[in-house]
């Protein structure tokens, strides 16, 4: 399926039962030391849809995203209060299986970060840490993930070359391939195309629309057109608060809040 080249908001959303929310947060509040980055976020992310997080820089989009797979654990003196569930299971508790959670909730970062190894090894590493070592299974998965990330044709003859020799856009697609190699249910993408040129961005967007069939995708973006093109739902954040959440059509054409309207029309000051 190929993406509509213009503003028609993402393909129509079939009416889904309301329980189909994979990620649910309630009154989620996050502090870095004394600084409050998120304030009482209550939000539900629908299954097998693309949800965009938009909002001005520093409003807490990345912080929220990193709650979903506990990447905030890496940062000292982060305090999180409230609830956050993935597939109905709490993810903030002390004795959550973080490894298992991250296997189910994959992440693609703003700056592509392939390992300085071969293309093949980048994906094989992801499999190995989850116990998949069987050669045939590894080869099969490497090919499947690279195909899913629309990278296979470009790299199939150079799988043993360093991933760092790929172009920026290819590296980012490799990171996507690596993330989906372990078959997560959810894919978190933090501005995955912000460092890429328009062609590479288009590839990534096409890819997201492809992946939407099998994955729940949450994507942070500063690009309003991108959010309109690829996402079914959009959440607008401002100063750590969730201002508005709805279908992208609604948020972009009939925003309920003044702030949202100002932001999506570019009149934000």
């Amino acid at each position: 399926m190929s993406p509509q080249p213009h503003q028609d908001p993402a393909p129509p959303v079939p009416a889904d039962p309301p329980h189909a929310e994979v990620i649910r947060t309630r009154d989620l509040t996050l502090h870095y030391g004394a600084v409050r980055a998120l304030n009482g976020i209550t939000l539900g992310i629908p299954r097998h849809r693309v949800t965009s997080f938009i909002g001005p820089s520093g409003c807490g989009k990345s912080s929220l995203l990193r709650c979903f797979n506990r990447m905030n654990d890496l940062i000292d003196n982060v305090r999180i209060a409230g609830h956050c569930e993935v597939e109905g299971e709490d993810v903030l508790g002390r004795d959550v299986d973080v490894i298992g959670l991250r296997k189910r909730v994959g992440m693609v970062f703003q700056r592509s970060n392939p390992f300085p190894r071969s293309i093949h090894e980048n994906i094989a590493y992801a499999l190995r840490i989850h116990g998949i070592r069987d050669r045939a299974a590894v080869e099969e998965t490497v090919e499947r993930s690279l195909r899913a990330a629309a990278l296979w044709d470009e790299v199939k003859d150079r799988l043993d070359e360093s991933a760092l020799r790929l172009s920026g856009g290819q590296q980012q697609r490799l990171c996507i391939a690596r993330a989906i190699a372990i078959r997560p249910q959810i894919l978190l993408m933090d501005e995955p195309a912000s460092a890429l040129d328009p062609t590479a961005t288009t590839r990534i967007e096409e890819l997201i629309l492809e992946l939407r069939r099998d994955y729940t995708i949450v994507i942070v973006t500063h690009n309003m057109q991108q959010a309109t093109r690829i996402s079914d739902f959009t959440a607008f954040f401002y100063l750590g608060e969730l201002v508005e959440f709805g279908t992208s059509a609604q948020v972009f054409t009939h925003p309920a809040h003044r702030q949202t309207e100002d932001y999506v029309t570019g009149r934000f000051g």
Binding site: L74, G100, F109, F115, I129, I182
Partner: peptide, 11 residues
């Protein structure tokens, strides 16, 4: 970024 990449994969 490299550490995060690895940890985010569930390592």
């Amino acid at each position: 970024g490299l550490r995060e990449a690895s940890l985010a994969l569930g390592a």
